[in-house]
Write a protein that binds this DNA or RNA. Structure first.
Lengths: 123, 123
DNA sequence: GTCTTATTTCACCGAACGGTTAACAAAGAG
DNA sequence: CTCTTTGTTAACCGTTCGGTGAAATAAGAC
């Protein structure tokens, strides 16, 4: 049995590689085969083949067969889960919970600081 | 120099671990320290300490100092980049570009296929 | 000072990762 | 059949990852 967390971990680690993200970006333009997908990269075909296998195993691409070519096409369904996961954190980067708060803490003169002192050294 | 792709890769690989995502989820409820964060997990403190270092290095948490404790708090800014990246793919899981299209291709009789020919042999 | 609490650093370990080269396989072309 | 094209598999290699136990550090309590 595959839990949702496992699938999400799998999706995210597949996405963590810039080569694989570039491949997905390219597949947004339409399906392509291994040789064409490999062209932009400074690595060998087996390396690309491995990346494609990772993407396929993560459900991010599907592959057909057409003569010798193995056309790949984008399967974005797992990205929906990523989107839903990250959406839960939206409030934390939108609503002054993040950098804005830090910025205000720095901009305000120390005398108006409320809350706990952080033992700032004078010097 | 850190490129945007590097940062995104770094963020995504930090998020690819379920323990680290659980820690972030917990920090949504408010800041906490290492010991408390470690409690739900069946692993040692150094392991949690490493996970926190990864999260900190990815800019996903910030850490203070309060007596012996090292309170951690969520920093969601990098998640915004993730959200923006994945948003580019939204159309592919929302608008019949994904599984629906596959379904239709299978259901339709081959003779009504439109669009670029891929050198389909008449069989 | 010593003791306790909280956390990190160190040294190690096995497994997974991202790449290579070389050999293999599948399918059309001659 | 052989030849070429396309892609995968196999074996290997160095690095990173996620964990451990043990020692070190930091700061308050006594």
């Amino acid at each position: 049995m595959t839990t949702a967390a496992d699938r999400l971990s799998n999706t995210l680690s597949a996405l963590a590689d810039p080569t694989r993200r570039a491949i997905l970006a390219r597949l947004m333009l339409g399906e392509s085969d291994v040789g064409r997908l490999a062209e932009p990269f400074d690595m060998t075909l087996p390396a690309i083949s491995k990346h494609l296998k990772v993407l396929e195993h993560a459900g991010l691409i599907a592959r057909g067969r057409e003569a010798q070519r193995r056309p790949c096409r984008l399967k974005a369904a797992p990205l929906r889960e990523v989107s839903e996961w990250v959406a839960a954190y939206r409030q934390f980067w939108e609503q002054r919970f993040d950098r804005l708060e830090d910025y205000l803490q720095k901009v305000q003169t120390p005398r108006q600081r409320k809350g706990k002192s952080h033992g700032r050294k004078g010097k």
